[in-house]
């Protein structure tokens, strides 16, 4: 689906341009920090971010060339991973804290007020520490996020008997192009060749942690919804329901 002339450098610059703006909660964080208040703020923010995420995905070169059904599936599968990757990126310079938005950050202790959140919080802080340790660069970060989107349902769609046989090969070609872009970004650092491919492996291994925390987070959000601790509206509810539907 990519124009043949799109070099790794051009592809990265297009993906960088697709980056969503900073999203503000735009209201005072409700104090005291109760379970309901924190969850309300986080889901409110997630709902706003999701709207921008759709716009981001549409700007990833090649994405809108997929059928609508494919676009829906990809976003449904990866939305929480993409949100979490953004959260980790924003939090990288703030050890021990998670920067949900410029006007909403929580320490581990503050996150503890939500039942079952401390485990997820710790996993996110640990993954963010790893990002800090790796000194992830912005160009690498945007490539990883695009890879999360394109790889999200790779193991859910069959290579045989697909409704759209071209779809899978298009997806693989696009994923290869983003991989080339990531390799190009790593090479730009001037690291010795051996360290370049070990860095590539380390960066890709981050993604398995992100998938793991996302699955935990999805279960937690579902649980919060079932217990009526937080009312979910609009796009967030739609995306959560789609995920639960796929899992079952």
């Amino acid at each position: 689906p990519l124009p043949p002339a799109l070099t790794p450098e051009h592809l990265i610059s297009r993906i960088m341009e697709a980056e969503p703006p900073e999203i503000y909660l735009m209201k005072d964080m409700n104090r005291p920090l109760t379970e309901a208040n924190v969850m309300m703020s986080l889901t409110n923010l997630a709902d706003k971010e999701l709207v921008h995420m759709i716009s981001w995905a549409k700007k990833i070169p090649g994405f809108v060339e997929f059928g609508l059904l494919e676009q829906v599936h990809l976003l449904e599968c990866c939305w929480l991973e993409v949100l979490m990757m953004g959260l980790m990126w924003r939090s990288v310079d703030h050890p021990g804290k998670l920067i949900f938005s410029p006007d909403l950050s929580l320490s581990r202790e503050e996150g503890n007020c939500v039942q079952g959140f401390s485990e997820i919080f710790d996993m996110l802080i640990a993954a963010t520490s790893r990002v800090r340790e790796l000194k992830l660069q912005r160009e690498e970060y945007v490539c990883l996020k695009a890879m999360i989107l394109l790889n999200s349902n790779m193991c859910l769609i069959s290579s045989e008997g697909s409704e759209e046989p071209q779809s899978r090969s298009k997806l693989l070609r696009l994923l290869d192009a983003v991989t080339d872009a990531l390799v190009w970004a790593i090479a730009k650092s001037g690291l010795p060749y051996r360290q370049q491919y070990t860095r590539l492996a380390h960066l890709l291994m981050l993604l398995s942690h992100v998938r793991h925390v996302s699955n935990k987070g999805m279960d937690h959000l579902h649980c919060m919804k079932m217990k009526n601790i937080v009312p979910l509206y609009d796009l967030l509810l739609e995306m959560l329901d789609a995920h639960i539907m796929h899992s079952s």
């Binding site: 969503p20 999203i23 706003k48 709207v51 921008h52 759709i54 716009s55 549409k58 609508l68 059904l69 676009q71 829906v72 976003l75 449904e76 609009d234 796009l235 739609e238 995306m239 329901d241 789609a242 539907m245």
Partner: peptide, 24 residues
């Protein structure tokens, strides 16, 4: 059509060109 019903907002956002700023 049931799929479209279940993903009403997602479909709408994917298909239209409305700025997310207007929708957020």
């Amino acid at each position: 059509s049931s799929l479209k019903e279940k993903h009403k907002i997602l479909h709408q956002l994917l298909q239209n060109s409305t700025s997310p700023v207007d929708l957020a």
